[in-house]
């Protein structure tokens, strides 16, 4: 992997904070002197729908959207959304998945099914480097279930695979979140980094 260029897909559910996570990675890249661009899902899908953010680092000549089989990393905040975005990941790519399912209303109402075990098993048998992250419990331990995104960012930053340091990611994160949310986010990030 060329350390100065990287494609990252962040997949999740509207409200989980994929946009913040992608902004943090892009800003950290810029501060490391690399070019960065992102593409987000904003609008109707933010209401608990499927969302994706794409982050492209060091890809000056290309647009912000990552094509099939191009991503080096898939950071999935939710297991079913990991499966939905899997086609974007290149063979051997890093697949980091929060194992806590968010069951949509269609499942609660019985009009569609969430096969948690089957989904997690499926992810285990794919040709990617899988790392399962217990991000939901960790976020609760950090102070809020909403900190799943920062837990996942911490876990990703701690792999050492990003073209900038873990502390650079944390610095940008703490600059981008509101002052009153800094403590929970810092805790979430640090706990995530230890997973």
């Amino acid at each position: 992997m060329n350390p100065s260029s990287m494609d990252i897909v962040i997949a999740g559910v509207g409200g989980q904070g994929t946009v913040l996570a992608s902004r943090v990675l892009a800003q950290a890249a810029l501060e490391a002197g690399l070019s960065a661009k992102t593409s987000e899902t904003i609008g109707m899908a933010q209401r608990e729908g499927t969302v994706q953010s794409h982050v492209r680092i060091g890809k000056d000549d290309f647009g912000p959207v990552i094509g099939t089989g191009q991503a080096d990393v898939l950071l999935a905040f939710e297991p079913a959304e990991a499966v939905r975005a899997l086609g974007l990941l290149k063979p051997g790519g890093l697949l980091m998945v929060n194992d806590y399912p968010i069951r949509p209303v269609t499942v609660t109402l019985g009009t569609s099914a969430y096969q948690t075990e089957a989904i997690l098993d499926y992810l285990k048998n794919t040709p990617f480097q899988l790392k399962v992250v217990r991000a939901f419990d960790t976020a609760i331990a950090a102070g809020s279930f909403k900190a799943v995104n920062t837990v996942m960012l911490g876990a990703l930053a701690a792999t050492g695979r990003l073209p900038f340091s873990r502390s650079a990611v944390l610095k940008v994160l703490l600059e981008l979140v509101p002052a009153k949310a800094r403590e929970i986010n810092e805790r979430g990030f640090e706990l995530g980094a230890k997973l």
Partner: peptide, 11 residues
């Protein structure tokens, strides 16, 4: 893949 849940946006 296993069948995935439908996830339309909701109120």
């Amino acid at each position: 893949p296993p069948q995935l849940p439908l996830r339309p946006p909701v109120l």
